[in-house]
Design a protein around this nucleic acid. Structure first.
Lengths: 214, 214
DNA sequence: TGCTGATATTGATTCAGGTCAATGGAGGGC
DNA sequence: GCCCTCCATTGACCTGAATCAATATCAGCA
């Protein structure tokens, strides 16, 4: 089947988690995968819905955000080679609190909750992938948390530039500001402050936290 | 063996996750468990160490905190019937960034990293517990995150009182303040404000986030 | 009993970032 | 070309929490 092309990246990714993945397990897993496409601006998850899939982003970019008093508070970006889900809702089986939206035309492959549970029951290697993914997301969230507890907005901005270097140019500044937990005005002032400062005078960071994803 | 008594609570807990746990699996798991006791004030994990166990708290209370410019920033409390670990360090196999300390005399049962990995490899039900625990911790962290993004310190305080009602009295206020991300002075003022306000005038919450653990 | 150290409260001051408002591009559509 | 909308920047002002400092409360203990 020619759908295989769209599974390739995910397969590569999963082989990093489980190098000795059994062909049979992969086949049964791959059968459950669905390819989906979202248009730029399309809302994928809305508050109130229970999120029923985990996706892997092949192409494009999404974001999740709270909407509170008409203001957006962005919690995550999901570029290619990244999971995308309202994982909290997915796991807890409770309605989402956040919106999730495609910022660019996006293609994902996803698997749905019930299918995934039956895969877990039958294929231990699937269960293992599930564990490793949950663990990875935990570590990632935990890092982001630390950054909020320990860093100033300016430090968070530096960190963001470093960690998310490949996608920075694709995201408007007001969204980055929101992701950093500040207003667009504040980010603008931070940038002004930085460009006024002698170059190479970068003051990252109270701690050696290193984060990989966005 | 009389050690069994100290495993009982954990067994009960695990049976909630996996009702049909196989006796054989449990036995092999239980063999790897170690009981440990910490004195009030004892440092269990220090920055620089890689955390090598996940514990289950039988009795007592612990906390984790960053130390930054001589100031403590508390990220978690771990009362009885709760996991305790520097899970981020444990999973990522990187040195801990936080301190973890017993606030009361504490007894835990724990399992170490390598043993756990070999259990995962042999017993799918263990792998499942690992997945469920990681997922639960993710959801919990995610809730705490939301609270930091969306709530005012006062709302966080109300939430804390609700969620952690059974342990509030065992924790000094300056630690609660730190956990809420504010100074002891600020918490004191919040409490003053509250007691001045007509009773029943509780303004939790911009969202329906409900958290269970601490 | 009174001393000591740790915790909690209260007041005065400071400051980072939020809010509000005005201005200045930059790109898209016609 | 011009208009219009969206976004970024800049300035003036405000506010909530941090900071610093003084005082109050309490527990443990010689």
């Amino acid at each position: 089947m020619e759908i295989t092309e769209q599974h390739r990246r995910l397969r590569t990714y999963i082989e990093k988690l489980i190098p000795d993945i059994e062909e049979d397990t992969w086949q049964h897993f791959a059968e459950k995968l669905t390819v989906k496409c979202y248009k730029k601006g399309e809302l994928v998850i809305k508050p109130g819905m229970v999120c029923n899939n985990v996706s892997y982003v092949n192409k494009g970019l999404l974001r999740s955000y709270y909407l509170v008093d008409g203001k957006e508070i962005i919690t995550s970006f999901f570029p290619e080679e990244c999971y995308f889900s309202d994982y909290e809702s997915f796991l807890s089986r409770k309605p989402a609190v956040m919106y999730s939206e495609a910022i660019e035309d996006t293609e994902v492959v996803d698997v749905n909750y019930d299918e995934l549970q039956s895969l877990y029951a039958v294929y231990p290697q699937c269960e293992r992938v599930g564990r490793l993914v949950a663990e990875e997301l935990f570590v990632h969230l935990s890092n982001r948390n630390s950054s909020f507890m320990l860093d100033t907005p300016e430090q968070r901005y530096y960190r963001f530039l470093e960690e998310c270097e490949p996608i920075v140019q694709r995201i408007p500044q007001y969204m980055i500001a929101s992701y950093l937990g500040i207003t667009p005005e504040a980010l603008s002032r931070i940038r002004a402050r930085i460009s006024r400062r002698p170059a190479g005078d970068v003051l990252i960071d109270s701690n050696q936290l290193k984060v990989k994803r966005c």
